Simulated assay, not measured.
Amino acid sequence: MYELKEETRAIVELVRRIVRDHQMPLEAQMLRGEKLTFADYQPGREAARQAGLWGLRLPSEFGGADLSLVDRLAVVEENRKCLTPIRFGGEVLPSLIHVQGEQKARYLDPFLSDSTAICFALTEPGGGSDPAGALSTHARRDEKGWVINGSKIWITDFDNADRVFVFARTGKERAANNISTFAVEKGNPGLIARPVPMLGVGHVTHQLAFEDCRVDDVACIGAEGAGFKSAQDALNPVRFEIAATALGIAQRCYEMMVEHAKQRVAFGGPLSEKQSIQSMIVDSWVEIQQIRLLMYTCAEKHDRGEDARIEAGMLKMVGSEMVGRVVDRAIQIHGAAGCTYETPLAHWYDNQRMARIYDGASEVLKHRVLARYLLT
């Protein structure tokens, strides 16, 4: 089993206390059927910021925690044991960190002060796991700035955002180096949003239409044509974090399995004495430990400055598939009670189904990333 270093364990304990004091009461509210708003998460968010847990991967010179990947994954794993995790602030595109002048004053400074919220719009209808190849949203320059036309879909956190960072093609050729990033204010008349309900109680993404959406020159973030590279730079850590999320949820499900199996009596004895139940619990524990060891070992490689892109894709794939199996076993052990939204299990059953699709579908990662790496 993988053992975290003492300093990392101290960070995890800090997260555990914030989750216990602020997030678990929210989980109880959600399980009672109460609708939570972004404001409900603010006390936990502020507690995390006061504890130095803001901008987990943001450089320290910008006020961020600047944690190593190992430390970030430990934070994510602990945080995601709760159905209503801390919503950490300070997550930003790498390209935004380096802006200067008016761009810094308009986009970076408000973000660093946590007075503004943003969302990202990359995926398009028909794009899926090939966002660069299928990207057709385009921006053309004129005497007043840029005009954006196109459509995006499956955009998360739009409701809570003040502006959208949209990726659009700025060259004629369908190449990744012809994609740029633009900041579009939410009230821009050329931006039209349609909510798209998803699996999970209250989960909504948005489809965005850009119809002659005008922005000025300052709204082009970073170098023209470097937008997709910026998105890719952020993707590998995200894939690691998806695996850490899977581990946190799986660990909580495992703990719920053990507790329920010991307490629930059926056919003259506790469920924990039934061989089939023991097998499900042991299988879950083994899978969790295997992926935890793999994840942190690969994260150490990344922290040493070595290329871990293949490992990121592998972990995203196996982690998202593992958590689905563990949640399913937990529901099976809980019986009908596991199928109600009065426990976290049904929520996670819905939510984690999508984890095998976003940020690289399992099939794409298996055949276009891992197989290509192994066979070339």
Rank of each mutant, 00 (worst) to 15 (best):
E259W: 01
A244D: 13
G202Q: 05
P195M: 03
Q275A: 09
T205S: 06
Q251V: 04
L208P: 11
I249G: 08
I291Q: 05
C213V: 13
V258H: 00
V204N: 00
M280C: 02
A243G: 09
G268C: 02
D212V: 03
R252D: 07
I277Y: 00
L247R: 11
A243P: 11
L208T: 08
K229H: 10
D216G: 15
L294D: 11
R304G: 14
K262C: 00
G225I: 04
G268F: 01
V238N: 12
L271N: 00
L208I: 12
L235K: 11
G222L: 08
Y254W: 10
A234W: 09
A234G: 10
V215N: 09
R292L: 05
Q232D: 12
Q289K: 10
L235E: 12
Y296V: 08
H203M: 06
L208W: 07
V265P: 00
Q278D: 02
E241S: 15
A234Y: 12
D216M: 10
C213E: 11
L271G: 01
A209F: 14
Q290Y: 06
L293Q: 15
A250W: 02
L191H: 10
S284T: 04
G248W: 12
V215P: 08
H260C: 02
L293M: 11
A244E: 13
C253T: 07
N236E: 13
I291Y: 03
K301F: 02
D216K: 12
I281F: 05
G200W: 01
I221M: 06
A223F: 05
F210R: 09
Q207R: 14
G202E: 05
A231H: 15
D216L: 09
E287L: 13
P270N: 04
A243E: 12
G227P: 03
A266M: 04
V282C: 01
V258I: 09
V215K: 10
R304E: 15
G222F: 07
C213Q: 14
L247C: 09
K274D: 00
V204Q: 00
Q275F: 06
Q290V: 09
V286T: 14
I291W: 03
A246Q: 02
L293W: 09
F228A: 04
L294N: 08
A261E: 02
G222M: 07
H260D: 01
M295C: 11
L271E: 00
G202D: 07
V218S: 09
E255F: 00
A299T: 11
E255L: 03
A234P: 08
S276T: 13
K229C: 08
C298V: 08
D216V: 09
P270L: 01
I242G: 04
E300R: 15
H206G: 01
F228V: 05
I242D: 15
D283M: 07
C220L: 15
F210S: 11
E241F: 07
L191N: 10
